[in-house]
Amino acid sequence: MTWPAGRGGPIGLAGVGTALPGEPVDNVNLSRRLGIAPEWVETFIGTRTRYFARDLDGGNVRWTLEDLCTDAADRALADAGADPDDVAFVVVATATPDALMPTTAALVADRLGIDGVPVYQLQSGCSGAVQALALASTLLAGGARGERPVGLVIGGDVCSKHLDLRQDFRELPPSQLVNYVLFGDGAGAAALTRRPGAARAVLARAEHWLGGLGRAPGQRVEWFGLADRHSGLPAVTEDYKAVEAQVPVMAQEVLDTLLDRLGWPAGSLGHVLPPQLGGRMTERITRGLRQGLEWEEVSCVADTGNNGNALVFFQLERLLPRLGAAGRAVGIAIESSKWIKAGFAVEATE
């Protein structure tokens, strides 16, 4: 097996938990609200359901990111058989915090009853969850845990906070309309540990690196203050054509790089967790990655919607019961904001 470098034993995945707000919103109900054909969503996006923290009709906030992250963290700790007193640090990854200050990480720690330990918040999109896993692995490998054996990693996004439900959607160009059918809200968490015998699987590697030198951003999410809130800029813009062209290539680069650095033959993989953009795009990426190999795909986006930093944890939740003895899996996340490549590897404990 391949372990992260550092003192002590391997970095283990002791528990995973996820949280979704309310009931799923299917394409018929979403299309009725947006005034578009449900067939368009199914044909071009391929996402069947998604979950929103806001009420689609009134626009009222029903769940905050803090609510969802707290629920997911509670479930991850319970899955690990741990409690808040076991947590040595908290890392939260999000692109959509409830507020700039205080951080969602600090508020979630407070609600969980965690005190006297470091809390970190990473501001990033779909690669943020892998960045959080990498940071947590480094902290645990470096011995930054004292008497507390668990590192708590959380990822989540409430994308609907950036979507204006009051406008006439028939006037929107496809580049903006796609954000209303592609994205959803949710949170996930993992409890990492180096405690012997406590892990359900091993986190063999977690890496990320910038791949956007000289490239225009593929996605931009604005932050508006009092001085510029009426600037007229759309809150979210996405170059979906650039995403379609670049993400499959970058996903293959991540897979090849991880296998090379781990020394794993491609044929040794039992599962691959591909990037979760939308149902159709994920299908296309998976076909390109497969190259005749027999590994099993682990995806969730067609049912959860693209809920950003939560996606990796929904995939891990599906992976762990399937991993099996001597199983190996690679996960890939691509962030189109400035083209960040990220990936991680999971291996069975026996």
Rank of each mutant, 00 (worst) to 15 (best):
L135V: 04
L135T: 11
L135G: 06
A136P: 12
A136E: 02
A136K: 05
A136C: 08
S137W: 04
S137G: 15
L139D: 03
L140F: 10
L140S: 06
L140Q: 09
A141T: 13
A141N: 12
A141M: 07
G142S: 11
G142D: 08
G142L: 14
G142W: 08
G143M: 12
G143N: 12
A144M: 11
R145C: 12
G146M: 07
R148I: 14
R148Q: 09
R148A: 10
R148G: 11
P149S: 01
V150I: 15
V150A: 02
V150E: 04
V150F: 03
G151K: 10
G151W: 08
G151Y: 07
L152V: 11
L152F: 04
L152Q: 02
V153A: 04
V153K: 03
I154P: 09
I154Y: 02
I154F: 02
G155S: 09
G155F: 01
G155D: 02
G155R: 03
G156V: 13
G156N: 10
D157L: 13
D157T: 12
D157K: 10
V158G: 06
V158S: 06
V158M: 05
V158T: 13
C159S: 13
C159F: 14
S160V: 04
K161H: 08
H162C: 09
H162P: 03
H162M: 14
H162R: 14
L163G: 02
D164R: 07
R166Q: 04
R166F: 04
D168Y: 00
D168I: 03
D168A: 06
F169C: 00
F169L: 00
R170F: 00
R170Q: 12
R170D: 10
R170W: 00
E171V: 14
E171R: 15
L172A: 01
P173I: 03
P173S: 01
P173H: 00
S175L: 12
S175M: 13
S175N: 14
Q176L: 14
L177M: 15
L177Q: 02
L177R: 11
V178T: 12
N179C: 13
Y180H: 14
Y180V: 08
Y180R: 08
V181N: 01
V181R: 08
V181T: 15
L182R: 05
F183E: 02
F183S: 10
F183D: 01
F183P: 14
G184R: 09
G184M: 13
G186D: 02
A187W: 01
G188H: 00
G188L: 03
A190N: 04
A191N: 05
A191M: 09
A191Y: 03
A191Q: 05
A191W: 07
L192G: 08
T193C: 08
T193R: 04
T193G: 06
R194K: 15
R194A: 10
R194M: 13
R194P: 07
R194D: 10
R194E: 12
R194I: 06
R195K: 13
R195L: 14
